[in-house]
Nucleic acid binder design. Structure first.
Length: 572
RNA sequence: GGCCCCAUCGUCUAGUCAGGUCCAGGACAUCAGGUUUUCAUCCUGAGAACGGGGGUUCGAAUCCCCCUGGGGUCACCA
């Protein structure tokens, strides 16, 4: 009987969950879920790697848990978390705690063993001294490898370590290390490239390398799936597993995810794009009003400094406000960004699952299956189908998937719920408008759903209805085309039908549609002749949902007011 | 720069392990038509790739080598 597969995701709580991290978590989850689906009982473990005391925060950790939960990636072992009545995490196997900062004693116990065996030793160089050594090596065009001195005296060093600041280093065995990787095959690293790495920092905290190895072994992790940026760490970890007498887990290093221009997808992208746009706008005259306003909000001096300094970065909220004022779309990088942009969690999961993996399944027509849910992923996930080459993140395709799900994968009612839940979190104006009139919200959802790629798009579709009736702004082109042209002109048609429209009995979307149809019939003209002018009169533009929905959203009274106002306005 | 990984349409990819059924399939995007009261949807069609050079073989997208290109990594961060 083979061992139960245990996978893990181990983020460091130094910020939001990055989309690349989400994919790693998803694949780890999927492998465990697949094992479970096969009746072999896999487990997915979540561990918080907070050994960097300066950069870690509890808030960041909480945010990551929430992001994972939103995506539907639930963990079996790990920090307890409640979501939608479901409780995640726990310590059924008694392998916790799951925050590395709470595991210091465990690391120290294993460190002692290594010291006693002569496999770990204290080192006293300061960061400055190490920097010098690196510089020198670079000048001599050789790579810097830290190695224990030939004349090293273990007991003397131990004695000195009692009173002096020091780190603990691992004595790398003098032999090449071969990493057996399920994705890449066997990868060998020569001893000459592997230095005596630091395993405990001056502050007494273990480094990432040591903590990971101890935890993976002690928590029973059997499969380590992670990004290829960790491949060079793998030989160090293998050596450490062996030195500690642990079994080496199965490794699988996954390809990386990049922006569509090939650049690394990093949190800095948002700042870079905002800065560029800000500077470009400074050249021209556009948007000076919004510019002044945001300068007042965030501080003119601060913005000036920020614009000049390539390194300077604005905070997350500041960036959002700046982008809002400038009508700029920031690239989505973190899971939270995609959520705010109105992507559906199941679509994000579907899409990122396809980055570096594919199910290799065909549908009835022989086409590759690429739209699927988490259950399908769990059923078909297999490490051997993970690719080797890096992928670019194509937001257009994500948007297309999202649009397809919204437009063809749910009912109007479901959309109304999801859209409202989104608005409550990201657009309070819209949520307020929704709650003012639930009946109207249902119509809004019906009108918006076929025209949305994301939940955020919905507002644009119904914005005309949220406007005060006397605040409709008439678009010059639409007026010309819809109201002034033709004989009779649009305005003439409007004048002619206004009364009949006000008299339509059934003021539902369908009733209105039918009513307007009858009016057109009675005049002996096509529907288009009436629809065009009416649309401009009600919305100020010639783009809107079907007329029935458009009028129903504005309401009988509003429609009357808007037509009246349109007829009274001097157009042109 | 050292070490390591990778290489099919613009992008994500199928096909590569077990060479022939591949003058390379799908999806997104693009372009051209069509349906539709606007928009969106939907339907039809088109263009679009095995990085280059050597081998091995009757036969190579598939195997081997070199080159080129891309990427990762070189912390008391993780």
């Amino acid at each position: 009987m083979s061992q139960t597969v245990v996978t893990r995701f181990a983020p460091s709580p130094t910020g939001h969950l990055h989309i690349g991290g989400a994919r790693t978590a998803l694949f780890c989850w999927a492998l465990a879920a697949h094992e479970r689906a096969q009746g072999r009982g896999g487990r997915f473990l979540l561990r918080i790697e907070d050994t960097d005391r300066a950069r870690s925060s509890a808030d960041a950790a909480a945010g990551i848990l929430e992001d994972l939960a939103w995506l539907g990636i639930g963990w079996d072992d790990g920090p307890a978390f409640e979501t939608d009545g479901r409780s995640l995490g726990g310590d059924d196997r008694a392998v916790g705690p799951f925050h590395q900062s709470e595991r210091l004693e465990i690391y120290n116990a294993h460190l002692e063993k290594l010291i006693a065996a002569g496999l770990a030793y204290p080192a006293f160089e300061t960061p400055d001294e190490l920097g010098q050594m690196r510089k020198k090596a670079e000048a001599e065009k050789r790579s810097f490898i830290y190695r224990r001195r030939e004349d090293y005296d273990h007991s003397a060093a131990l004695e000195r370590a009692r009173t002096e600041d020091h780190v603990l280093r691992f004595r790398m065995p003098a032999e090449p290390v071969t990493v057996v990787d399920r994705v890449l095959g066997e990868v060998s690293f020569p001893y000459e490239e592997l230095d005596d790495l630091v395993i405990r920092k001056k502050d007494g905290f273990p480094t990432y390398h040591f903590a990971v190895v101890c935890d993976d072994a002690l928590m029973g992790v059997t499969h380590v799936l992670r990004g290829q940026e960790h491949l060079n760490n793998a030989p160090k970890h293998v050596a450490l597993f062996r030195a500690l007498g642990f079994e080496v887990p199965v490794f699988a290093h996954m390809p990386l995810i990049f922006n569509s221009d090939g650049s690394k997808m990093s949190k800095r992208d948002k700042d870079k794009i905002a800065k560029k746009a800000w500077k470009e706008q400074a050249q021209g005259q556009d948007g000076t009003e919004a510019r002044g306003e945001i300068e007042a909000q965030l501080g003119e001096e601060k913005l000036k400094k920020w614009a000049k300094d390539k390194q300077a970065q604005l905070g997350r909220d500041e960036l959002v406000r700046l982008a809002g004022a400038m009508d700029l779309t920031l690239p989505e990088i973190d899971v939270e960004d995609f959520r705010a942009a109105g992507y559906l969690p199941e679509v994000v999961v579907n899409f990122i699952a396809l980055l570096g993996w594919n199910p290799g399944v065909r549908d009835d027509e022989g086409k590759e299956v690429e739209r699927f849910d988490a259950a399908f992923l769990a059923e078909h996930f297999d490490v051997v189908r993970i690719g080797k080459s890096n992928a670019r993140f194509d937001r257009e395709k994500l948007a297309a998937f999202n649009a397809a799900t919204i437009q063809h994968g749910m009912t109007d009612g479901r959309f109304a719920e999801l859209w409202l839940a989104w608005a409550e979190r990201f657009d309070s104006d819209l949520a307020g408008w929704a709650k003012d009139d639930p009946g109207r919200w249902a119509i809004a959802a019906r009108a918006a759903r076929p025209r949305c790629k994301t939940l955020r798009d919905g507002r644009g579709v119904v914005a005309f209805a949220m406007l005060a009736d006397d605040a409709v702004a008439y678009d010059a082109k639409a007026v010309k085309k819809g109201l002034l042209k033709g004989d009779p002109s649009g305005l003439g048609v409007l004048r002619d039908v206004a009364e009949d429209i006000g008299a339509i009995g059934d003021w539902s979307s369908d009733g209105l549609e039918a009513g307007i149809g009858k009016i057109a019939e009675s005049r002996g003209v096509g529907l288009g002749k009436i629809a065009g002018p009416l649309r401009v009169a009600i919305t100020g533009t010639n783009v809107s949902p079907p007329l029935g929905e458009t009028l129903a959203l504005v309401g009988r009274e509003g429609v009357g007011v808007r037509i009246e106002r349109c007829l009274d306005t001097e157009h042109g």
